[in-house]
């Protein structure tokens, strides 16, 4: 499924968050959005998924190539997991299937399938509060996969996790993208995540948020390993790209609550 972001600008009352963003996301492509704090990454991701109406411009989605059984083409994975504490793991996944015309058997089959994919089968009846952060995010992934999304929209999905869990989940994401050829937009602060997962890394600059540079990484995702020299080089290049902005962002006083 191709996503075309056309001339998107957005302003919050005082702040011009995004200006004239043009970007096309090709089917099967993983695009990482990076940039300093406050450059509008989350804003752009919300606009892409239809959770925020841009001040001007539009996002087009080419409906031809939806995956089979797709119930929700643009599907988010959240930084804070957004799981219902009163539902079990299976119940949280079931939640997003219940409003679709699926038979009980189909629904249960989908739940089993995504639980197996995310190694959660043993946890199906656990409540979120019983799970570690990493497990919660796996539930978030399982829930997203259950609707067979065309595009995964992920806003810093690893940043609420501890460093070790992050490494584990990063490997799992990389497997997922390599195996399924999923289209995804992945917002992150972490350049290492960006170079491990993305075909293209879009660096934004701030105030107003505009695209500074698009950086392509031509190594197939399944061949990328931690510490691979080419990846380290890409990471260095990206850091040089956003370094000055990051310093400026760090020094700025926050005037918006």
């Amino acid at each position: 499924m191709r996503l075309t972001i056309k001339n998107v600008s957005h302003r919050y009352d005082q702040v011009e968050a995004l200006r004239d963003i043009d970007l096309t996301i090709e089917p099967g492509e993983v695009v990482a959005l990076i940039g300093p704090s406050g450059c509008g990454k989350s804003t752009l991701l919300s606009i892409i998924g239809g959770m925020l109406a841009p001040t001007s411009g539009e996002v087009l989605i080419d409906d031809q190539a939806k995956p089979e059984g797709c119930l929700n083409p643009l599907t988010y994975v959240f930084q804070d997991f957004a799981l219902l504490p009163w539902r079990t793991v299976a119940g949280n996944i079931s939640l997003v299937l219940e409003d679709h015309p699926l038979s009980r058997a189909e629904r249960d089959a989908r739940i089993e399938e995504v639980l197996a994919q995310t190694n959660l089968s043993d946890f199906r009846d656990a409540f979120p509060k019983q799970l570690s952060g990493g497990m919660k995010q796996r539930v978030g992934i399982a829930r997203a996969l259950a609707v067979r999304p065309a595009v995964l929209l992920m806003d810093e999905p690893l940043s609420a996790l501890d460093a070790q869990t992050r490494i584990l989940l990063l490997d799992e994401f990389s497997d997922l993208f390599a195996r399924t050829g999923m289209t995804a937009v992945y917002v992150t602060h972490n350049l290492n995540e960006a170079v491990r997962l993305a075909h293209r890394v879009v660096a934004l600059r701030r105030r107003p948020g505009t695209i500074k540079e698009i950086h392509s990484i031509d190594i197939p995702i399944q061949d990328r390993r931690e510490g691979l020299p080419e990846l380290v080089a890409h990471e260095g290049a990206l850091w040089n790209l956003i370094r000055d902005e990051a310093i400026a962002a760090d020094k700025e006083l926050e005037n918006v609550a």
Binding site: L74, A82, W86
Partner: peptide, 27 residues
């Protein structure tokens, strides 16, 4: 009720009545 849960429901295209019944009411 946590806004992020409501937004989650909307982002999965849950109908309003389902959001009320399954997210807002229990929350």
């Amino acid at each position: 009720v946590a806004r992020n849960l409501i937004r989650m429901g909307q982002s999965f295209d849950m109908p309003m009545w389902s959001v009320i019944r399954k997210i807002i009411l229990p929350g």
